[in-house]
């Protein structure tokens, strides 16, 4: 009897959930939601948060070598923004009943994924420009629709993140523009960075639609608003125009305007490379994970001390508190 009424409740709840999605009413943490919807969001938001955190490493690699004090400050602030984005996203995921500790554990054990792009190395200063222009550019195209995603805390977080990302993209473009107008060596440095980052940036939109297992359901739930291929095309169209301002080349001989489609055509993507990097065979997968694990392990005693001090403070047992107590006596 009980079971039956539970089922009926679930049906009614599912119906009201579906109606909300249909009418574009946002889902809040306290609202009922299907188990799979919750699971998908936890996976996507935590993956996004992990990407921000791991994404601090390739750019952090150039902080101490930034060529001017102004560029150094901009780069530090940018990497710090990424930490901030990671923080909002972990908080958004926590509204779905998962703790930050659990998510961190999933990242460090290799169970959770992060964006594969961060497994590529940053080999020159121009990579700071290419990451800003291409990687942040691709991220913005991916993320703007997420400002309207159906889960409210995620959507709210994304509004703030997108504002900062577009600032980062402009900074990246500015680095490349300065290099492209500089010496022959600087121009070559910029071109080399674009050559290395172009194809991995296209892969950031995920596998083609016909091989993307989650796309259909995620579109239905309005977690996702456009398919991988639609977003990828948008990105190619944008970059094909912007690269002209730089006077540099996109490393794709097949890239050309298609009047009929109203879009740029582009060459085939090396999906073998993509899957290899996802599987852990990218140039820096091991280094990135090792750096995260080291930070976590080196921080263990610090976190333990902070907890212990907080406990002592609450119990009136810190050095200062016991000193005061002694004086009182």
């Amino acid at each position: 009897m009980r079971k039956l009424s539970d089922n009926m409740d679930t049906e009614a709840l599912q119906k009201s959930f579906d109606e909300k999605i249909e009418k574009d009413i946002k889902i809040e943490p306290k609202d009922w939601m299907p188990v799979e919807y919750r699971k998908t969001l936890i996976r996507q938001i935590s993956q996004h948060a992990h990407s921000e955190i791991v994404g601090m490493l390739p750019e952090g690699n150039w902080i101490t070598r930034a060529p001017t004090l102004r560029r150094k400050c901009i780069l530090i602030a940018k990497v710090q923004d990424e930490a901030g984005h990671g923080l909002y996203l972990y908080c958004a995921a926590e509204t779905l009943n998962i703790t930050r500790e659990e998510m961190t554990e999933q990242l460090l054990s290799g169970k959770a994924k992060y964006s594969s792009i961060f497994n590529y190395p940053t080999l020159s200063w121009a990579d700071m420009g290419a990451i800003g222009w291409l990687v942040d550019g691709a991220a913005i195209i991916n993320q703007i629709p997420l400002c309207r995603t159906s889960y409210a805390p995620y959507a709210r977080g994304m509004v703030r993140i997108c504002k900062e990302e577009s600032f980062h993209q402009r900074q990246g473009f500015d680095i490349l523009l300065t290099l492209s107008r500089g010496s022959a060596e600087q121009k070559a440095m910029a071109q080399d960075a674009i050559n290395r980052w172009w194809w991995p940036s296209l892969m950031m939109f995920g596998p083609p639609d016909n091989e993307s297992p989650h796309t259909i359901q995620n579109m239905k739930w309005k977690i996702k608003r456009f398919t991988n291929d639609e977003l990828r095309q948008k990105f190619v169209d944008m970059c094909a125009q912007q690269v002209e301002v730089l006077g540099l080349q996109i490393p794709d001989p097949d890239l050309k305007w298609n009047e009929e489609r109203g879009h740029y055509d582009f060459g085939p993507i090396n999906w073998d490379e993509f899957w290899n990097v996802v599987k852990g065979n990218g140039p820096c997968n091991k280094e990135r994970m090792a750096a995260r694990i080291k930070a976590h392990e080196d921080g263990e005693w610090v976190r333990a001390a902070a907890l212990e001090y907080a406990r002592k403070e609450a119990a009136g047992l810190t050095g200062k508190q016991s000193e005061k107590a002694t004086i009182k006596k």
Partner: peptide, 14 residues
């Protein structure tokens, strides 16, 4: 700045 990205917890990294 050598700490950026390597702090013991996110809030303190920031």
């Amino acid at each position: 700045s050598e700490w950026t990205g390597h702090g013991p917890m996110l809030e303190q990294d920031i």
